[in-house]
Simulated assay, not measured.
Amino acid sequence: MTAPLSAYLVPIALLVASNVFMTAAWYWHLKFTSTPILTVVLLSWSLAFFEYCLAVPANRIGYEVFSAAQLKTIQEVITLTVFVVFSALYLGQTPTWNTGIGFAFISLGAWFVFRG
């Protein structure tokens, strides 16, 4: 018997949401270089709290249908995707061809993990 589609999609949706928080926690402050580092760390930890609140259930639920390696691979591909969007929209740094090629190689690695 196969798992329902939601068993596959819910963890992915939670990982996308968690990565939005994590990317913001890691990179929001790059536009605010005059903000004291302690303030940056405390605000980033606050954002990271929400990332953990989403990532932990995503992995717990996802482990019912994915292996640990597959979950990590999904998370990394999502991280790169969220980062590219964040970098372009928030930081104003559009990806270059080299970035695209590098991410393509990472995606090729992900394909091997899921290949079976």
Rank of each mutant, 00 (worst) to 15 (best):
A3Y: 12
P4H: 14
P4S: 11
Y8K: 09
L9F: 07
L9G: 06
P11L: 12
I12K: 09
I12A: 15
A13P: 12
A13H: 03
L14N: 05
L15P: 02
V16G: 08
A17N: 08
S18I: 05
N19R: 15
F21P: 01
M22I: 15
M22K: 14
T23K: 10
T23S: 10
A24T: 11
W26S: 08
W26N: 15
W28R: 07
W28C: 03
H29N: 06
H29R: 10
L30H: 11
L30M: 10
L30Q: 15
F32Q: 11
S34R: 14
T35R: 06
L38Y: 14
T39V: 15
T39P: 01
T39M: 15
V40Q: 11
V41D: 10
L42G: 09
S44R: 09
S44T: 10
S44N: 06
W45H: 15
W45L: 14
W45G: 09
S46R: 07
L47H: 14
A48F: 10
F49P: 07
F49A: 15
E51G: 08
E51L: 02
Y52L: 14
C53H: 11
C53N: 15
L54E: 02
L54Y: 11
L54T: 06
A55S: 12
V56P: 02
P57Q: 05
P57R: 10
A58F: 11
N59W: 10
R60I: 15
I61L: 14
I61K: 05
V65W: 13
F66P: 01
S67M: 14
A69M: 06
Q70N: 12
L71A: 06
I74D: 00
Q75W: 02
V77D: 06
V77N: 02
I78V: 07
T79Y: 10
L80V: 04
T81N: 04
T81Y: 00
V82S: 01
F83P: 07
F83D: 09
V84R: 00
V85M: 14
F86Q: 11
A88F: 00
A88V: 01
L89I: 09
L89Q: 12
L91G: 03
G92H: 07
Q93I: 01
Q93W: 01
Q93C: 03
Q93F: 02
T94D: 00
T94I: 01
P95I: 00
T99F: 00
F105H: 01
F105V: 00
F105N: 01
I106G: 04
S107N: 04
L108M: 07
L108I: 10
L108K: 04
G109M: 07
G109S: 11
G109W: 09
F112M: 08
F112Y: 10
F112S: 03
V113C: 08
V113R: 04
F114P: 10
R115W: 03
R115L: 02
R115N: 04
R115F: 02
G116P: 01
